[in-house]
Amino acid sequence: MAEPRLNFDNVSALVVDRDQYSLTLTRQMLRGFGLRTQYQARSGDEAQKFLRKTPVDLCIVEARLTDMSGYDLVHWIRRRPEEILRFMPVMLLSGYTQMRNVATSRDCGANCIVRKPFSPKVLYDHIVWSAASKRPHLESSVYIGPDRRFHDLEDTAPARRVTDEDAPAPDPDAAPDIADDQLRRTRA
């Protein structure tokens, strides 16, 4: 069967990262995927100002910013009145200095969390997974963001809560989600 094609040509993305080198590498990867419209912000404030004027199709946010945390930025995005922002796929990049904050990452409303360092393959798969995932978007007094309960994994996961012992082997064809896996373990 022919490998499916995905068209990044008209996708626009905002990458928010305080580290110029990391920002450059992420943007180069996106460019390689075919994404032509990219914006960058070095701080949460800069990102907020930009997003108020220019909605994008994808937002990639580093968890550690200079003026606020990436979690706070995602939290802000999820509470915007504009649906295009509120429902926008948001990926949170988290290094091992932030992996201690798994619960915060889970609760801020990001679609997925990508553990740094990451390869182009991991970035690509997470973008595709974020786009393909048909999780509902929840709004409650305590949480706004994609459903964290993984209804769409019924085909590959047991109906009950999984533990390390009975977790199914990951499907290599399904886009892997490292942090989601961690979150499931945290909840188990």
Partner: peptide
């Protein structure tokens, strides 16, 4: 994002990853 990705044209996963390696 979902709508745009499925528009005609684009790259296969292998092509996209090769493109990323080249850009890097």
């Amino acid at each position: 994002l979902r709508t745009l990705l499925t528009e005609p044209g684009g790259k296969t996963r292998s092509e996209a990853l090769a493109g990323a390696a080249e850009a890097l």
